Amino acid sequence: MTTTHIALITGANKGIGLETARQLGARGVTVLLGARDERRGREAEALLRQEGAEARFVPLDVTDEASVRSAAEWIEAEYGRLDILVNNAGTASLSGRMAPPSETSPADMRAVYEVNVFGLVAVTNAMLPLLRRAEAGRIVNVSSEVGSLAAQTGTGSPLNALPASAQYPSSKSAVNMLTAMYAKELRDTPVKVNAANPGFTATDFNGHRGFRTAAQGAEPSVHLATLPDDGPTGVLWGHLWTADGDQDAGYGVLDW
Score class of each variant (00 low, 15 high):
residue 108 D to T: 08
residue 47 L to I: 03
residue 136 A to Q: 12
residue 154 G to A: 11
residue 109 M to P: 01
residue 25 G to C: 10
residue 227 L to T: 04
residue 174 A to T: 12
residue 92 A to F: 01
residue 130 L to R: 04
residue 102 S to C: 12
residue 44 A to K: 00
residue 94 L to W: 07
residue 195 A to P: 06
residue 185 E to F: 09
residue 112 V to F: 02
residue 211 F to M: 02
residue 202 A to W: 04
residue 241 W to T: 15
residue 85 L to S: 12
residue 82 L to C: 09
residue 170 S to Q: 12
residue 178 L to C: 10
residue 20 T to V: 15
residue 116 N to S: 04
residue 110 R to Y: 08
residue 237 W to E: 00
residue 211 F to V: 11
residue 26 A to Q: 10
residue 8 L to H: 02
residue 244 D to G: 12
residue 151 A to Q: 06
residue 85 L to K: 11
residue 220 P to W: 11
residue 168 Y to L: 10
residue 165 S to A: 14
residue 96 G to K: 04
residue 229 D to F: 09
residue 36 R to T: 01
residue 206 N to R: 03
residue 138 R to S: 05
residue 14 K to R: 15
residue 148 S to E: 09
residue 250 G to Y: 13
residue 53 A to G: 02
residue 95 S to W: 06
residue 99 A to G: 02
residue 100 P to T: 08
residue 2 T to Y: 02
residue 120 L to M: 13
residue 70 S to P: 00
residue 89 A to M: 13
residue 91 T to Q: 13
residue 135 E to Q: 15
residue 174 A to G: 11
residue 117 V to L: 04
residue 253 V to C: 13
residue 176 N to V: 07
residue 232 P to A: 10
residue 107 A to T: 09
residue 128 L to V: 11
residue 122 A to W: 00
residue 37 D to I: 03
residue 69 R to H: 09
residue 228 P to N: 10
residue 136 A to R: 14
residue 150 A to N: 09
residue 66 A to D: 15
residue 13 N to V: 05
residue 213 T to K: 08
residue 196 A to D: 07
residue 166 A to E: 08
residue 47 L to V: 01
residue 25 G to Q: 06
residue 147 G to W: 04
residue 138 R to C: 10
residue 111 A to N: 11
residue 95 S to K: 13
residue 169 P to F: 11
residue 243 A to S: 14
residue 15 G to A: 05
residue 67 S to L: 12
residue 232 P to T: 09
residue 192 K to L: 13
residue 114 E to Q: 06
residue 120 L to T: 14
residue 14 K to T: 09
residue 110 R to G: 02
residue 22 R to C: 11
residue 138 R to E: 13
residue 78 E to H: 14
residue 26 A to C: 07
residue 194 N to P: 10
residue 58 V to R: 09
residue 117 V to Q: 00
residue 189 T to R: 05
residue 149 L to W: 13
